[in-house]
Computed example of a mutant assay.
Amino acid sequence: MSKVLRIGMIGCGGNGRGHLKNLVSRGEVQVVALTEPSRAMLERARQEIPALAEVPAYANHRQMIKHNELDAVGISTPHTLHFRQVMDALEAGLHVFCEKPLTTSVAETRKVIAKSRRKRKVVVVAFQRRLHAMRRFMRSFVRDKAFGRPLFVQSFCSQGWLSGTRGTWRQKLALSGGGQLNDTGAHIVDMIFWTMPARPVEVTALIDNRGTEVDIDSAISYRFADGALGNISIVGSGPRNLFWEDMTIVGSSGQALFLRNGVLYASTGTETLEFKSFGRDGDRVGHFIDVIRGRARNESPPEDFLPTIAFTQACWKSAKLGGKPVKIRY
């Protein structure tokens, strides 16, 4: 591998441009090629990021991979396209940074895991919450012996997703693979698996598509392998001017942790504490580079995405069955 990490970016939409701005600001990285089928999106990326003015662009990721010397790719495209793009990059011997969801099925995720292991290449799923100092504090707090065994978990997320994504690929099942539960909701589900010491084993879900092709509002209850209970409310029909997220975890020792839209409280059983300082958050793109360079352990590998998509698929299945319980198959 060269001293400068040569990266090709697949997708120059809003998320893609955010990652590109991050990449071009790093001295040890060079963006050497782009894939973007939309001329308008490509021109917008070049206008916002002057460093991309002379970077060659392709309408197809396979052509980009074929005609450029690359070390890695970044992927920020409609969700159902991820699997083929990830697999082609790995087959070419490239490291992969991929927006969530990594894939839209358990079967696809297993194939990515097998391919990345066989090729011995890094795959990082862009779950930024895993690198947030507050979330890391929460994980340590819940897994401390003083907290006891987690008994109950409540997660809530409200977003104006229905109105905000109307008319876009996110509400087209063939491109998104699912709705709010598989989009912003993927972050919520991932935090449950990453924070809790046990995995959910059974789920029951009621979902309303609100007249669209994909899930918008989801009411989910589930049971962990160790007997703990949980529920998730994913509200995609919320107001556009307010994003809200809560999480509550109750432990057997009488302690509890309460996240209220970015503000964290803990109850010790005798007093309630508010935590305000957690240190510096990590950066997804920087983490990807550090993992490739051997400076960090991969905090978000494809193996960790498998439980999230397995849970999500079980929710969709339960909803189709009218809310009947469904075992989660990992």
Score class of each variant (00 low, 15 high):
V291E: 08
D290K: 04
S277R: 15
R329G: 02
V285E: 10
R295N: 00
K317H: 14
R295F: 00
P302N: 02
D283C: 13
F278M: 13
V285P: 03
P325L: 05
H287P: 14
N298A: 06
E303R: 07
W316T: 11
T272E: 12
G286D: 13
L321D: 14
A296C: 00
I289M: 07
K276W: 05
F305W: 11
P325C: 06
F305N: 05
C315N: 07
K317S: 09
S277W: 11
V326N: 03
I309C: 08
E274Q: 15
G279H: 08
R293A: 01
S267L: 02
Q313F: 02
V291W: 06
G286W: 01
W316Q: 06
E274S: 12
F305L: 07
A310Q: 02
D290T: 04
W316Y: 13
E299N: 11
T308S: 11
G279L: 08
W316N: 03
S318G: 10
R297S: 07
P325I: 04
G286Y: 05
A296K: 11
T268G: 13
P301G: 07
G279C: 13
D281E: 13
G269T: 00
D283R: 12
I289L: 10
R293K: 03
Q313N: 12
K324R: 13
N298G: 08
G294Q: 04
R284Y: 05
A310Y: 04
V285I: 15
K327R: 11
K317Y: 05
G294S: 03
S300L: 00
G286M: 05
K317W: 04
A319V: 12
P325S: 09
T312H: 13
K320C: 10
P301D: 03
T270R: 15
G279P: 15
R280N: 09
R329A: 12
R295L: 11
